Simulated scan of single mutants.
Amino acid sequence: MAAMIAPPPSSLLAGEIALYAATAALGGVMLMLRRRLRAFGRRVIPAGALTTSGGPPRGAVLGTLTANALDGQARSLASWPMPLLLLFVSDSCPISRKLIPIARTLARAEKLTLVLAGEEDAGRQERFAARIGQPKDAFLNDGELGRILGVDKLPYAFLLDGKDGTLVARGLVNSREHLESLVISGELKVASLQSYLSEPPTRSAA
C-alpha cells in the first residue's frame, strides 16, 4: 500500500502565503515608483539651447549664404561637409573661449564639421584663430552673416544638414548640454527641446 503524503505544516503554508503577498506588494511599489519617476522626468526639463525670437526658422535653407573666411576666400555654408555646426564666438567672450574645445569634442563624437564665426577686427580674429588652433578657412569673419542669421548674443550655434544646408536647430549655447540639445532636436525633428516638452502629449483616439 502506497504511503500517503503528509500535508505541509501550517507554518510552512503560512510562510509561502506571506512570501507571495510580499512579492505582490513589492511589485506594486515598483510600479508606483516607476510612475512617479516618469512624472518627475516630465517636470524636469533638460538643459537646452535657448532659441531666440529672431533669426531663420527650422527648415530654412542656409547653404546658399556666403561669408568671408580668414583666409580671404568667400565660402558658402554648403561648401563644407554636412552636418555642419556653425558656432558664433568672440575672443572677448570668456564663455566662447571655454565652449570651443567642448564644441570640438562634440563635433568629433557626432561627426560634425565645426566652423567658427565672428565679426571682430580681422587682425584680432586671426590672432584668436592662431591661439586656439582653428584653420583660417574654417573661421568666418563677416558681420553681415550674423545679422542675417539674427545673432545678437554669444555664443550662438546653428546646426545645418543636407546637401543644401538646411537649418536643423539653433540657439544660444554655453555648455555641452546646450550643444547636445541641438543634435537631439535634429533627431526629434523639432525646433527646440523646450518647444517639444511644452507641447501637450497626443492622445490616441478611443
Results as ranks from 00 to 15, higher is better:
10 S>Q: 11
105 T>H: 06
190 V>A: 09
91 D>F: 12
45 I>Q: 13
25 A>N: 05
56 P>E: 05
39 A>P: 00
115 V>Y: 02
193 L>C: 01
95 I>A: 11
189 K>R: 14
132 I>L: 14
50 L>G: 01
35 R>W: 08
86 L>F: 14
19 L>I: 06
174 N>Q: 13
145 L>T: 11
157 A>M: 03
53 S>D: 08
176 R>W: 00
89 V>H: 06
3 A>G: 11
31 L>A: 14
174 N>E: 10
65 L>V: 03
71 D>P: 14
202 T>W: 13
84 L>M: 04
195 S>W: 07
142 D>Y: 03
32 M>T: 07
177 E>L: 14
148 I>T: 15
132 I>N: 03
180 E>M: 09
186 G>C: 08
37 L>T: 04
137 D>V: 03
9 P>C: 03
170 R>Q: 10
148 I>V: 15
170 R>I: 01
131 R>C: 02
202 T>H: 14
118 G>A: 15
78 A>S: 15
100 I>L: 07
29 V>S: 01
154 L>R: 03
16 E>S: 04
6 A>G: 04
28 G>Q: 06
103 A>M: 06
167 L>W: 12
106 L>N: 02
108 R>N: 12
12 L>H: 08
175 S>M: 04
14 A>N: 04
176 R>C: 03
76 S>L: 05
109 A>N: 06
130 A>K: 10
46 P>K: 09
20 Y>E: 10
79 S>N: 05
2 A>P: 15
90 S>A: 15
15 G>C: 03
185 S>K: 02
48 G>D: 03
21 A>E: 13
58 R>V: 04
116 L>W: 12
26 L>R: 14
52 T>I: 09
143 G>A: 12
158 F>D: 01
